[in-house]
Design a protein around this nucleic acid. Structure first.
Lengths: 130, 130
DNA sequence: CTTGACCTTCCCGTCACAGGAAGGCCCATA
DNA sequence: TATGGGCCTTCCTGTGACGGGAAGGTCAAG
């Protein structure tokens, strides 16, 4: 199948698929006219990649996961390690965002939001990060 | 003061401060030898920027906030609008991360993590995003 | 035969800097 | 006075994961 069809199947933009080929994540065959010709196995890989990216794994982690997925003799321990360290990253990012959220919503609540020129938000940013 | 001192005061790398000058966020004077010469007002702006960035505002939002901060006749309503839309973004990002977290921790929980080759994590990624 | 949809490669832009090279400046010490 | 080390400058490249768009080839329908 051509790139548009596999893109629709995997739920990825064609640009992204070309990029994945560029960086060696997939290696679709070429038709005589130079068009990429995707096999079902390529479509499956792309779906795998789309899902892994959707879970927030980096491209390099996706590369590793894909290799483990392709490798029938891999140990699941390695996969779990990858997933757990990613979970740690997610938790850290959430904590960071929640801290921002707490500070900022505190400032927003203190702000009348009218036409007066004194603004607790700007003051808060200028003076400290609460 | 020179760049190193203002960097220490604002808690920003010197590289970042040069970048902020490049994109027009600050305009420090120059000494005769070509060195940047930061006034206290510059240091205050840089602190403001450091705090705003720390709260997750983009550079362009910081530019707008800084302009509002400098403008004595601004209305706080505009500031509040900016802050609230940023809060929305934060909340959306948190929700996205929590969804990833839920799916991934579910998969990790289902994975024995031993040496057996069948891995629910890889299966989960391959088949669907739960 | 033309039209329009599809495909290709190539290059630049994104965001917010970080790293590093090459070279100039300043101050203290020998 | 020489020199060493730390500070400063500009300029260029790289990051991650693509997106936009130009220039041009290909294919199927009418």
């Amino acid at each position: 199948m051509n790139i548009k069809e596999v893109a629709a199947r995997a739920g990825l933009p064609a640009k992204t698929i070309r990029y994945y080929e560029d960086i060696g994540l997939i290696r679709p065959k070429r038709a005589a006219n130079g068009y990429r010709s995707f096999a079902d196995a390529d479509a499956a890989k792309l779906q795998f990649l789309a899902h892994a990216r959707g879970l927030g794994f980096t491209i390099e982690e996706c590369r590793a996961l894909l290799a483990l997925y392709e490798d029938k003799s891999r140990a699941s321990a390695e996969v779990k390690k990858l997933a757990e360290s990613h979970l740690d990253r997610i938790a850290a990012k959430i904590a960071e965002l929640r801290a921002m959220q707490a500070t900022l919503s505190h400032l927003v609540h203190a702000c009348a939001g009218d036409n007066r020129p004194d603004c607790p938000i700007l003051q808060g940013i200028a003076e400290r990060v609460v």
